[in-house]
Design a protein around this nucleic acid. Structure first.
Length: 271
DNA sequence: CGAGCAACCTGCATGC
DNA sequence: TGCATGCAGGTTGCTC
């Protein structure tokens, strides 16, 4: 479910409900996430006040006075604001009860998500220390992408999905951006010139920005922190459309697998 | 170092 | 209806 636009949509949805609220209590029902949730977390969080919610790649960083909670939604995770007396369902793994009677609820059927605690004096965390630039920042440019791609034989689609190169480009938006830039996803990253990377960088920025403005992409049941679905699905040009006609040339879209992920593209329009 | 792939886990669609 | 199979929005960490 969540790529960068969905994580950002979640951040914006929950932020107003959390800012300057204190955590009355954390209820940890299942600590078996991607990495086990620290047993000490409920005790650590009790009484702490949320000061800020940031995003780094697909990680949400909830800042408190005495540390930071780092949350990842994995493939199937979501965060919602619900009433504290809302009964927990099967995959609701933890709640943060707030001082206004609401609670932040983490739900994740596949348990690929995670929750870590960062001490304020930490310089970061191994999971986020080596991340590449934010795609919507000026640090992500054709110049840098061109430079770091020299000599790389990996397919360009897998290259832009590598979080050390750029964060937040998942399978949906990688397919969409390559289609918009008209680049064949199988091409070696090192074989692409600066001008074409210029187009790719613009396509990535555009597709991510548009998706955020639409509230993300809802494929199954994604909802933002405010409970509303995303409306970007109707804008998808290739993802999930293998065998259907290309919207530019009408030719049937090709679907292949790259690194165990579905790739959809047009053999005519993408070179 | 890079490339390829198995693994983590559950739900759902599909086909026999 | 039941069962086996394959696939899914992500990422780490192993082999070669």
């Amino acid at each position: 479910m969540p790529e960068l636009p969905e994580v950002e949509t979640t951040r914006r949805g929950i932020e107003p409900h959390l800012l300057n609220r204190s955590i009355v209590k954390m209820v940890l029902r299942d600590k078996r996430l991607r990495w086990p949730v620290a047993d000490a977390l409920p005790e650590l969080l009790a009484g702490q006040v949320v000061r800020q919610i940031r995003r780094r790649g697909k990680y949400l960083l909830v800042d408190f006075d005495q540390g930071t909670a780092m949350i990842h939604l994995g493939m199937s995770g979501s965060l919602r604001i619900v009433s504290a007396d809302d009964p927990a369902a099967k995959h609701d793994h933890f709640d943060w009860l707030l001082d206004d009677g609401n609670c932040l609820r983490f739900t994740d059927p596949r348990r690929f998500g995670s929750l870590h605690w960062l001490q304020p004096d930490d310089h970061g965390h191994p999971l986020i220390d080596h991340l590449g630039p934010e795609p919507l920042s000026d640090d992500f440019s054709a110049d840098t992408l061109y430079r770091v791609s020299r000599g790389r034989k990996v397919a360009v689609k897998q290259f832009i999905m590598n979080s050390e190169i750029v964060v937040g480009v998942g399978n949906i938006y990688a397919n969409e951006a390559l289609y918009r830039a008209r680049i064949d996803p199988r091409r070696a990253a090192g074989s692409i010139g600066k001008t074409r990377y210029q187009g790719l960088v613009e396509a990535i920025k555009t597709v991510l920005s548009e998706a955020i403005n639409q509230g993300g992409t809802t494929l199954r049941d994604f909802v933002g922190g405010d409970g509303k679905p995303g409306y970007f699905k109707q804008e998808l040009q290739v993802y999930g459309r293998g065998g259907e006609p290309c919207k530019i040339c009408e030719r049937s879209l090709t679907e292949i697998r790259q690194g165990q992920r579905a790739t959809v593209f047009c053999r005519q329009c993408q070179r």
